[in-house]
């Protein structure tokens, strides 16, 4: 890969934190403008992927060991799913957010927020996992 391209490495060192920040912005601003959990997850994931391309997969793995991405995968998925279950327990139907708070509108707000977070986590973790697996291959020719 591009281990020797110093310029790229330096520039990207500057770029990656804003990318991650931007991802967070997209994540939590999705209610108002375009964007949401999925897009945020992709961006977040691509931040790490960029890092991995430039500094090698192993470096990323030191920051984010495989077990943690896997855990995040599950956590993300379950965050979403269990939000629905919470609705069930609180007396609504599955994925009914109205019951999450006293005021249905707030309930909806919380619900969407949590759910989007779940999406974001899952997508980011998925992207990183998929990329890592591909990059971890020995290569053909």
């Amino acid at each position: 890969m591009m281990h020797r391209k110093v310029v790229l490495r330096v520039v990207s060192k500057f770029l990656i934190p804003p990318i991650l920040l931007f991802a967070l912005y997209v994540q939590f601003h999705g209610d108002f403008g375009p964007g949401g959990g999925f897009q945020a997850g992709v961006i977040f994931g691509s931040g790490f992927i960029l890092y991995a391309i430039l500094f090698g997969v192993e470096t990323v793995k030191r920051v984010l060991p495989p077990w943690s991405t896997r855990l995040l995968l599950v956590v993300g998925v379950l965050t979403y799913g269990l939000t629905g279950v919470a609705g069930l327990i609180l007396g609504g139907n599955y994925l009914d957010y109205n019951v999450l708070a006293h005021d249905p509108l707030h309930g909806q707000h919380y619900g969407i927020l949590i759910v989007e977070l779940g999406v974001g986590i899952t997508v980011a973790a998925s992207m990183i996992t998929i990329f890592n697996v591909f990059a971890g291959q020995s290569g053909g020719d």
Binding site: G30, F32, P34, G36, F38, Y94, G111, E116, V119
Partner: peptide, 23 residues
């Protein structure tokens, strides 16, 4: 729902089960 972005409202609330599937 109380969200200005209708797409988000539909995605995450009205049709949130689709999105669960998507995840």
């Amino acid at each position: 729902v109380g969200m200005p972005n209708i797409v988000t409202s539909v995605l995450a609330s009205y049709r949130s089960f689709d999105t669960l599937g998507e995840v």
